[in-house]
Amino acid sequence: MTFCCPLCHAPLAHTDKSYACPQGHRYDMAKEGYVNLLPVQHKRSRDPGDSAEMMQARRAFLDAGHYQPLRDAVASKLAEILPDGTSSILDIGCGEGYYTAAFARTAEEKGAITFGLDVSKSAIRAAARRYSQVTFCVASSHRLPFEQSSMDAVIRIYAPCKGEELARVVKEGGWVITVTPGPRHLMELKGLIYSEVLLHAPHSEQLPGFVLQQEQSLAYEMSLTGKEAVALLQMTPFAWRAKPEVWETLAEQETFSCQTDFSIHCWQRID
């Protein structure tokens, strides 16, 4: 299995240093080993996705192990649902590859290769440097550069993606695993930013062409240093609403307790 061209959708042939389609569209591989499949006309900004600073903050937070229970839970689900002889899996919105590397270990045991996709070049560059066992690409999650019915499983942790694209690339009988915030996710952090803290809305997503086969809630409390709490805030959409005094308050904390609440759903592709 290989990539398809994001411009004409023809299969891309791989040489030592590039990918090319029969129409002559060519995509060179970066020295780190990833390929950029995000044409200029598909970008919404000059440098889309997380910045290098945001990526580094997230990597430090994740490397500290605060979200390891989530990573382990999703990897366990993947091991449970993937049959032996699986060929390919994809992590959408993979960031710097913290989750993707764990999924790749599971996929390898099933005989599959693992792809990681993100719109952020900074994140993919860092991921490719660290996790050579994964094939990484810069690409849009709304225009997946993969052939029809090419994936045995797709993992989507918070990342947006059109349902039609998921239905296109996942094989019949294949899977999509999604992770979304549970009702009480990061309530303490939200309490520093909003005058009224609302629960996250209950899960209501529908994926046409898929049947929801399993769902699981995962919740636990984290104890963070002030630096880790700042990194966590920087990872979230709340960062745009946080006033300077919020950042200062978090940075000064010796310990900051914050609860997690994740919803994990396993969807199976039907004909």
Rank of each mutant, 00 (worst) to 15 (best):
251 A>D: 11
167 A>R: 14
141 S>H: 01
216 Q>M: 04
234 Q>D: 04
127 A>F: 11
113 I>N: 10
96 E>R: 13
23 Q>R: 07
136 F>H: 07
100 T>P: 10
146 F>S: 01
164 E>C: 06
159 A>C: 08
124 I>P: 02
1 M>I: 10
61 F>N: 02
180 T>K: 11
68 Q>N: 12
195 S>M: 05
50 D>M: 01
87 S>N: 13
57 A>D: 07
93 G>F: 14
115 F>Y: 15
33 G>H: 05
161 C>L: 07
158 Y>M: 04
164 E>M: 07
93 G>K: 01
162 K>R: 15
168 R>W: 10
87 S>K: 12
260 T>W: 04
187 M>C: 03
107 A>Y: 10
230 V>G: 02
239 A>P: 00
195 S>L: 11
224 L>G: 01
86 T>H: 06
198 L>K: 15
38 L>A: 11
65 G>F: 05
265 H>F: 04
77 K>Q: 15
88 S>R: 14
269 R>K: 15
211 V>W: 01
35 V>N: 01
154 V>K: 02
46 R>M: 12
136 F>Y: 15
229 A>Q: 05
259 Q>P: 03
123 A>R: 03
255 T>G: 00
182 G>H: 03
250 L>A: 10
171 K>F: 09
199 L>F: 04
159 A>M: 07
193 I>V: 14
143 R>S: 09
54 M>E: 06
67 Y>T: 07
266 C>F: 04
121 K>H: 04
231 A>R: 04
162 K>A: 15
133 Q>L: 06
182 G>P: 10
14 H>L: 14
186 L>I: 12
55 M>H: 02
269 R>I: 07
200 H>P: 05
227 K>F: 08
29 M>I: 08
178 T>W: 00
99 Y>A: 12
184 R>H: 12
191 G>I: 00
97 G>C: 14
186 L>P: 06
16 D>N: 11
249 T>F: 09
18 S>G: 09
217 S>A: 08
